[in-house]
Simulated assay, not measured.
Amino acid sequence: MTRRIRLIADDYGLAPGVCAGILDLLDRGRLTGTSCMTGFPEWAEAAARIKPLRGRAAIGLHLTLTDQPAVTGKSSLAPGGRLPPLRSLALPVLRGRVDERDVHAELDAQYSRFVEALGRKPDFIDGHQHVHFLPVVRGWLRTRFPDTAGRPVLRGAPALSDAAAAPKIAAIAAVAAGFNQSMQRAGFAVLKPLAGIYDWRQPEKFAPLLEAAVEALSDRGLFMCHPGHVDQTLCARDPMQSVREVEFGVLASDAFGASLARAGVEILDGRE
């Protein structure tokens, strides 16, 4: 029996080079889909480029609450108009120093930009730096999608995919505690298990991690990745740079295609 897995690229819309790399891999059939960051000036152009793939590729919303300009401008969430680093987000939100209404307004704005540009709701929702696991975002998801019939699929909590990355996975899992169960009870479908987490400062770890997922990830399991090409826009916006070229090269390679064939594994497309 053929085992099928999901490969989802994060960060579509972050920079033109990232978009180009993801579109290339979608065209090659090496990705199930991608999640989109909608807050940048180039979003309308990026959306127009991926819009023809609706239905064939899974196109989701990559909720962003850290490190980038806020769509809604200055607020308690982004006092200077820029979203805070992750380390400066979670505790202030939990302790009430950030107004929940400002967080929800920013998420509403990003969601609206997605729907306006693509003419449909996202196929799924996840979060930049996993912010969708935060309680304030869980609350937004329940409020934004009151009808269970129209709720998007959510990316679930991580599985232990690499012993070397165990501390990082454990930290994410702590924030995600109870997410799968509570959101399923609320009527959301959850994609799980999640694999693909590793220390991106060690790009040589990506290929063996992907190979291990091909060999062992459960049917319909999810592997997250961050492929793309480095350009000046990316260098100005995000520290995760050269590793994106490494991930792109591995995913586009004949060796990866051969590993899928050997394992009897297929990559799900966006219709499944």
Rank of each mutant, 00 (worst) to 15 (best):
I5S: 09
I5H: 08
Y12I: 02
G13D: 08
V18F: 07
V18N: 03
C19H: 08
A20N: 05
G21D: 10
I22C: 09
L25V: 10
L26G: 04
G29L: 12
G29A: 05
R30C: 08
T32I: 10
G33I: 03
T34I: 10
S35T: 15
C36L: 14
C36Q: 03
T38V: 08
W43D: 05
W43L: 01
I50S: 06
I50D: 06
I50Y: 08
K51N: 09
K51H: 15
H62E: 13
T64V: 15
L65D: 02
L65E: 12
D67V: 01
D67I: 07
G73R: 09
S76V: 05
A78E: 08
A78Q: 02
P79N: 08
L83M: 04
L83I: 04
P84Y: 07
P85V: 07
L86C: 00
R87Q: 15
S88R: 15
S88K: 13
L91D: 14
R95E: 13
V103R: 00
Y111L: 11
Y111Q: 03
R113P: 06
V115K: 09
E116T: 10
G119M: 12
R120M: 14
F124S: 03
I125T: 06
Q129V: 03
H132F: 11
L134Q: 04
P135W: 09
G139T: 09
R142V: 03
T143K: 15
R144C: 14
R144Y: 04
P146F: 06
P146V: 04
D147A: 14
D147H: 12
A149M: 11
R151Y: 02
P152N: 00
P158H: 07
A163T: 12
A163L: 14
A163V: 13
A165C: 11
A165D: 03
A166E: 15
P167R: 08
K168H: 09
A171D: 13
A171E: 15
I172T: 12
A174D: 12
A177E: 11
Q181A: 15
R185S: 13
A186R: 05
V190S: 05
L191H: 12
G196Q: 04
G196M: 01
D199M: 00
W200M: 11
Q202T: 14
Q202A: 15
E204K: 13
A207N: 06
A207C: 04
P208E: 02
E211P: 00
V214T: 11
E215I: 10
E215S: 12
L217K: 11
D219Y: 05
R220W: 14
L222W: 07
M224N: 08
M224A: 02
G228S: 10
G228E: 09
G228I: 03
V230H: 12
Q232C: 01
Q232V: 01
A236Q: 11
P239H: 03
M240P: 02
Q241P: 12
G249D: 15
L251C: 07
L251V: 02
S253W: 06
L260R: 00
E266Y: 11
D269S: 13
